[in-house]
Deep mutational scan, measured.
Amino acid sequence: MAAGGDHGSPDSYRSPLASRYASPEMCFVFSDRYKFRTWRQLWLWLAEAEQTLGLPITDEQIQEMKSNLENIDFKMAAEEEKRLRHDVMAHVHTFGHCCPKAAGIIHLGATSCYVGDNTDLIILRNALDLLLPKLARVISRLADFAKERASLPTLGFTHFQPAQLTTVGKRCCLWIQDLCMDLQNLKRVRDDLRFRGVKGTTGTQASFLQLFEGDDHKVEQLDKMVTEKAGFKRAFIITGQTYTRKVDIEVLSVLASLGASVHKICTDIRLLANLKEMEEPFEKQQIGSSAMPYKRNPMRSERCCSLARHLMTLVMDPLQTASVQWFERTLDDSANRRICLAEAFLTADTILNTLQNISEGLVVYPKVIERRIRQELPFMATENIIMAMVKAGGSRQDCHEKIRVLSQQAASVVKQEGGDNDLIERIQVDAYFSPIHSQLDHLLDPSSFTGRASQQVQRFLEEEVYPLLKPYESVMKVKAELCL
């Protein structure tokens, strides 16, 4: 049975990233139509530049190519590739079939990587351009969430054990800070992308030097003109047959890092959902379990974690691919890159769409948070109580021993009897502590235990987050809708 299948058929496997999760716009960027249309555009740009620099290419040939950029006979191309065992030459023939007058000058002087690699770089750039505003929107939604809850005390956790208090907004800023680093890295790697350009079979530009009869300047002009037509500021000066596969490492490393950030955020949300302090959106008709109707599973956060793990592992592909590119190139890269580049971007696209949807509907339960604080705060307040007693004339050592005994009794009630923490009640009825009984409410005010959390939130948002989001103001209103 021949390899390949009808990918629109229910009898043929289709990647869930495309069929179930990723956005239509990201799927289109990695589609065959987008790819092969870009090949034709690159052939047109090459012909236009070659004509401008004096090669015998007519206006009629150029116009014929322009008129057929979208006229792609995919069936013919597939048949040609089956016959020739070469995808680029299959599309040269297919393009030439609908451009008979231009057929002889299509791909003039070029090698397969002229269309293959340059198209990949265009796709990487455009895919990054799709991700950047999506990530900015996630940051914006979380920034709104953090600002609104900047002063809401909550129990902090280290080692997932109760620690000092923080605020809900401050905790959210930990998430935002990681995503801001990801946004900066995505922008950097996007701006650092260079075009492969017009380089020939081993990167020496020998074929173009021959076409222009040894004119170095025209060869350099050709490279520059096509690079500018493709919208790049610069091209690699040095290439082998391909652009260095280190570029793929750079791009997928940034995406993998984004995956790590999203995994951490969504894990926190899942843990908070278990504590009943916070939940992701839950639709009115949504079913959490087929057997347990009360369940409210954090399905979206779980999906993000599941896909983020996949995204983090994909960076190993370009690392290994770059390491086995012998001399000017081997074909070890080809099949692998067809999979890992598309999957990385479709996965990143999915987790950003999902995280935006989550961040637009996060639900906080202040009463649950308050109750958990009441359970733990008495123990945390013991040092403040000791200091207040010393100020009232008591002995630190005597007070410490009193607190120690009462704390152990209260802990026994919590752990052995399943009761509430009654340390404060014990202190309130103990005559030894009568000098500070009137101060206990103040000493137990949760806001006095959150330090500068709310001020940190305000400063972080104003100095770091809002300036970073400013270039994306025009796209901030787009909502994230999930079908599944």
Rank of each mutant, 00 (worst) to 15 (best):
H7C: 11
H7R: 14
H7F: 12
D11I: 15
A22I: 12
S23R: 10
S23H: 10
C27S: 10
Q41F: 14
A47H: 05
E48T: 07
A49R: 01
Q51P: 00
P56E: 13
D59S: 12
Q61D: 11
E64D: 14
K66G: 10
S67C: 13
S67H: 11
A77K: 06
E80R: 12
R85S: 02
R85N: 01
D87M: 00
M89F: 10
H91L: 08
T94K: 07
G96F: 07
S112H: 00
G116A: 14
G116D: 15
D120S: 06
L121R: 01
I123V: 14
L131P: 04
I139W: 01
I139G: 08
F145S: 08
A146T: 06
S151Y: 11
L155G: 02
T158R: 00
H159L: 02
G169H: 02
R171A: 01
C172F: 04
C173R: 01
L179K: 01
D182K: 00
L186R: 02
K187C: 10
V189F: 07
R190D: 07
V198M: 15
V198Q: 03
F208W: 03
F208K: 05
L209F: 13
E213G: 14
K224G: 10
K229Q: 07
G231N: 10
K233I: 12
I238G: 07
Y243D: 00
T244N: 08
V247G: 11
D248L: 04
I249K: 05
L252C: 14
S253N: 13
I269S: 04
I269Y: 05
E279T: 07
I287F: 01
Y294D: 02
P298I: 03
M299Y: 09
E302N: 00
C305W: 03
L307Y: 01
L311N: 00
M312N: 02
V315S: 11
S323R: 04
S323D: 02
T330E: 00
L331R: 01
A335Y: 04
R338K: 06
R338D: 00
C340E: 03
C340W: 04
A348T: 14
T350V: 15
L352R: 03
Q356E: 11
A381M: 10
I386H: 08
V390D: 03
K391P: 04
G394Q: 07
E401T: 09
R404W: 11
V413E: 13
D420E: 07
P435S: 11
I436Y: 05
I436M: 07
H442V: 15
H442N: 15
L444M: 13
P446V: 04
S448R: 15
R452T: 14
R452Y: 07
V457L: 06
E462F: 12
V465T: 08
P467H: 05
P467N: 09
